[in-house]
Design a protein around this nucleic acid. Structure first.
Lengths: 136, 136
DNA sequence: TTATTTTGTAATAAAATATGTTACAAAATA
DNA sequence: TATTTTGTAACATATTTTATTACAAAATAA
């Protein structure tokens, strides 16, 4: 991950977790994150797909959590935005002639999967509520 | 990490670990990885900076491990190529007016550091020798 | 009903990273 | 002395990330 998606998603969800049952506009979120409202809405789309938030169009519309912050783990958030493995990518065409090249991607694949799982497991133990409670 | 540097570095080092005391050329490494020799040399430069390999110019030159594969951990390799945190980047200018924006980067910073450490600790337990022994 | 607001999404552009290529001086050997 | 190979720089291309603009559709308030 060399993007800001996890940071953006956590920021959004932290604000929603602290905002009670009201609808928060992308404009307001964008102001806090200092980011274009359209970018925020793109990230909200991913969180909606993951079942973490719900949105409402029209006047006084916006977004809010779809379930309690106690029931949202940081792993849920990570999964919603993750687009790369922790250890990065594999090379595309290692040589099948070479004993190493022939099976390196399979061996790296195991290592990559274990490493990703490690991170997921650690984030699984932390809730959005806990994270959000750190702020004033 | 959304690059192939860790995969490339492990590939290079695995071959060197299996090649005894001889000097392996970047041309040969590039053939196995299926990559331009100049790219391989760039990665070798990072591994040299990290003290993992040493190089020799001239006829019959090349690279070889600087210490035994038993003494090289996957964490050493990861550190040599790592250029991003596991959970990604933080947003640049969150609003200091917002209670969340004001301290989000500091709170994320703690989480990011813990997560990176988790990965490092796991990789610390694995040696290059162990990894390299998986191949024919 | 009508005017207004806000989402959700697409299309496009700009910036930043990552990957690939070429070239060559310097080092080292045979 | 001729040849090989590194180490590095300069440049080019591709991919990813971030930002911007626009607008139809939905929803509310008046």
């Amino acid at each position: 991950m060399s993007n800001t998606r996890f940071a953006t998603a956590v920021h959004i969800l932290t604000i929603l977790a602290r905002s009670g049952p009201g609808w928060i506009s992308s404009e307001w979120l964008a102001g806090s994150i200092c980011m274009n409202p359209a970018m925020v809405r793109k990230e909200l789309a991913a969180l909606r797909d993951a079942g973490l938030v719900t949105g409402r169009k029209g006047k006084d519309g916006g977004s809010r959590l779809r379930k309690s912050g106690d029931l949202i783990s940081l792993a849920d958030i990570y999964r919603a935005v993750k687009n790369a493995e922790v250890l990065g990518r594999k090379n595309r065409n290692p040589s099948p002639q070479c004993p190493v090249g022939k099976s390196i991607n399979s061996k790296l694949g195991q290592l990559y999967a274990e490493t990703d799982q490690l991170v997921i497991d650690a984030l699984e133990n932390r809730t959005l509520s806990d994270f959000a409670s750190q702020f004033d």
